[in-house]
Design a protein around this nucleic acid. Structure first.
Length: 532
DNA sequence: TAGGTCAGCGCC
DNA sequence: AAAGGGCGCTGACCTA
C-alpha cells in the first residue's frame, strides 16, 4: 500500500490518503491528530509514503517518526523532467502540478524549508495532499521501465537517508580538531589575525623576495616571481614545485597551512560543529540528493564532501562505539566493465590497476591507473591519449562504450545512465569544435559516473533497509560518492561491516543482474576516521 | 557596501 | 610528470 501525506502546518493537521500501486485513491482523505499518528500507520501497514521533499520527512524526523519507504514526487519529477530532455526545468510540487494542468511551470521556490507556505505566494495556496496524489498518479503512469522504477525508489530512499544523516550528524570531537590545528598552525590567534606559523612562513617569503609580498594574492605572487626572472603561468602548487627559488618552499608550506586555516580552521569548527552537551559534537551538513547532474549528492554548508584528510582524526566514535568506514574499491572501472559487458576489464582481483599493469603495462601500476582514468575522463593529447590507445586494443567493447557516449555528446544527443538518469542536453549555439570536444568528455564521463552514483545509491538504500529490518542500532552518519560511514555500538560493529559488504554485492546484482563483475567494499572498524 | 567572478585547492 | 570528469568553499579582485 501507498499513503500520500500532507504533513500540515501549525494551523492545519496532517492529512493522508491511501493509494494503490498506481496511485489511485483507495478511500477518502483522513485527518490525523498529529504527526505521531504516522508512526502508527507505518507500524500497521509499512506503506510506501508518497511525499514532497524535504520538508515532509524533516518534519517527521523532528516529531520522532521514521519511515521505511518513500516515493518522493519532487525527486521523481526531477528525474522525469530530465528524461524528457528538459534539464534545469523546475521540478517542485507546484511546477509538477502546473505541468499536469498544461500551464507553464514557474521557477521552484529558492529553498525548501519546513515552514508553511508564505502568505503572499503567487497564486492561491494549493491543497498539498491533492497535489501530491495527482502528481504521483501521473508519475506512476509514466514509470513503466523497471530500471527507472528502481532509480525512483533508490532516489527516494536517498532522500530519507539524507535527512536522517543530517539529523543524526557526524560525530566530531572539537577538542581533537582544536589540538591538531594548534599543532599545525600554532596557538589560535585571539584577535583573528594570522596564526603564528603562517606569519612566520609569510615573513620567510618576504625575506626571499627582499620585499613585502601578499602571499594570499596570486597576482602579486606572479609579479614577485616575474621581478626575479621567473615567468609563471599560474601559482598552482604543481607549477611552483618545478621552480628553483628560495621563496618556493615557504610559499608552498604557507599555501597548505593557509588552506587548512581558512577552510577547516577554528572558524569552521565554531560555525559547523554543534556541541551535544556531553563534551562531544556533531557536524550536521545538509545533503542535496541529486544535486549534481550525474546523480551524485551535493551538500550545503560546511563543505561536507571535502573534509580534508588532515582533519579526519577529529571524526571519532563515542566511547563504547565504533565507526564502520567502508569504501568501494575502484568502483568506476568496475561499473564500466559491467555496463559494457567487457568483463576482462574487471577480473576477479581486488586491485584492478595492479592486475591491468601486470598484463599490459609492465607492472607499472601508476601507468595502468592513468590509462583507465583517461578512458573514463577523456584525454585530449599527450601520453595519456597514447595509453588509451593500448586500452582500445585490449578492451574494445569497454572503450567503444565510452567512445559512443563521447560521440553522442559531441553530436548533441542525449545520454543516459544505466538506470535512466539523463544527462542534460548541450546548450544550443556551442557548436565550435572545442566546445563539442568538451561536451564529449562530459558525456563520456557521465555514463560511468552517473551509473556509479546509482550503484552507490542502491547500496545505501539496501543497507538502510537491511539495518532497519534487523533492528540494528547502527546509524548512517556520512556518505561521500562511493564511501559510507556508520556509527555503531562496538558490539554491533562486526555485523554492521558484514551488512555493508552484503549490500555492495546486492547493489551490483540489482543494477546488472548476473554479471561476473564483483563490487568489493572494504569495511574497516575503527575509532577515528583517519585510521586505515 | 554588496554582489559577482576568478584562482586555487580540498574531496571523489 | 601534471593532462582528462564532477563538485564546494575561500579570499582576492573587480564592478555597480
Amino acid at each position: 500500500m501507498r499513503i500520500a501525506l500532507d504533513p500540515g502546518s501549525r494551523d492545519a493537521p496532517p492529512r493522508v490518503r491511501r493509494l494503490d500501486e498506481h496511485g489511485v485513491p483507495l478511500g477518502d482523505v483522513e485527518v490525523l491528530p498529529d504527526l505521531f499518528a504516522v508512526a502508527r500507520l507505518e507500524k500497521e501497514h509499512a506503506p510506501r509514503w508518497v511525499i514532497a521533499r524535504p520538508r515532509t520527512y524533516r518534519r517527521l524526523l523532528d516529531a520522532g517518526v521514521e519511515v521505511a519507504r518513500a516515493h518522493d514526487v519532487e525527486l521523481t519529477e526531477g528525474l522525469l523532467v530530465a528524461a524528457d530532455g528538459h534539464f534545469g526545468q523546475p521540478h517542485g510540487l507546484a511546477a509538477a502540478v502546473a505541468r499536469l494542468e498544461g500551464r507553464t511551470p514557474a521557477a521552484d521556490p529558492l529553498r525548501d524549508d519546513d515552514g508553511p507556505p508564505a502568505l503572499f505566494e503567487s497564486g492561491p495556496v494549493g491543497d498539498e495532499l491533492a497535489d501530491v496524489v495527482a502528481v504521483h498518479a501521473a508519475q506512476q503512469a509514466r514509470l513503466t521501465d523497471p530500471r527507472m522504477r528502481l532509480l525512483v525508489a533508490a532516489e527516494s530512499a536517498g532522500g530519507l537517508v539524507a535527512e536522517e544523516m543530517r539529523a543524526t550528524g557526524l560525530p566530531w570531537r572539537a577538542d581533537v580538531h582544536d589540538a591538531l590545528l594548534t599543532e599545525a598552525l600554532g596557538p589560535r590567534p585571539v584577535l583573528g589575525g594570522r596564526p603564528p606559523k603562517l606569519a612566520v612562513l609569510a615573513a620567510e617569503v618576504d625575506a626571499a623576495f627582499g620585499r613585502r609580498v601578499n602571499v594570499d594574492s596570486p597576482a602579486e605572487v606572479l609579479r614577485a616571481f616575474g621581478r626575479v626572472g621567473v615567468e609563471l603561468e599560474t601559482t598552482r602548487s604543481w607549477e611552483l614545485k618545478g621552480v628553483d627559488h628560495p621563496a618556493v618552499a615557504p610559499l608552498l608550506a604557507y599555501k597548505e597551512l593557509a588552506r587548512l586555516h581558512t577552510a577547516h580552521g577554528w572558524a569552521w569548527l565554531r560555525t559547523w560543529v554543534r556541541p551535544d552537551g556531553h563534551g562531544r559534537g556533531r557536524f550536521h551538513p545538509e545533503y542535496v540528493v541529486g544535486g549534481v547532474v550525474s546523480g551524485r549528492w551535493a551538500t550545503r554548508g560546511g563543505g561536507a564532501l571535502q573534509i580534508p584528510k588532515a582533519v579526519r582524526a577529529a571524526v571519532r566514535a563515542d566511547p563504547g562505539w565504533k565507526l564502520v568506514v567502508a569504501d568501494a574499491s575502484q568502483l568506476e572501472p568496475r561499473v564500466l566493465a559491467a555496463l559494457s559487458g567487457d568483463h576482462a576489464l574487471a577480473p576477479d582481483e581486488d586491485d584492478l590497476y595492479a592486475a591491468l599493469a601486470a598484463r599490459e603495462f609492465g607492472d607499472d601500476r601508476a601507468k595502468a591507473k592513468l590509462a583507465l582514468l583517461s578512458a573514463m575522463y577523456g584525454a585530449g593529447s599527450g601520453s595519456a591519449a597514447q595509453l588509451m590507445g593500448r586500452l582500445r586494443k585490449r578492451f574494445p567493447a569497454a572503450m567503444a562504450f565510452v567512445d559512443d557516449a563521447a560521440r553522442a555528446g559531441e553530436e548533441g544527443r542525449l545520454v543516459r545512465s544505466h538506470l535512466g538518469r539523463t544527462c542534460p542536453p548541450a546548450r544550443p549555439g556551442h557548436e565550435e569544435p572545442a566546445a563539442a570536444r568538451a561536451r564529449g568528455r562530459f558525456t563520456r564521463n557521465f555514463v560511468v559516473q552517473a551509473t556509479a552514483a546509482e550503484w552507490a545509491l542502491v547500496l545505501l538504500a539496501d543497507l538502510r533497509s537491511d539495518l532497519r529490518g534487523a533492528g540494528s542500532p547502527a546509524r548512517l552518519v556520512f556518505f561521500q560518492h562511493d564511501e559510507v560511514v556508520l556509527h555503531v555500538p562496538a558490539e554491533a560493529a562486526a555485523a554492521t561491516a558484514d551488512a555493508v559488504q552484503a549490500a555492495a554485492t546486492t547493489a551490483g546484482r540489482r543494477l546488472f543482474g548476473a554479471t561476473p563483475v564483483r563490487f568489493p567494499m572494504q569495511a574497516r572498524v575503527v575509532d577515528g576516521y583517519d585510521e586505515h
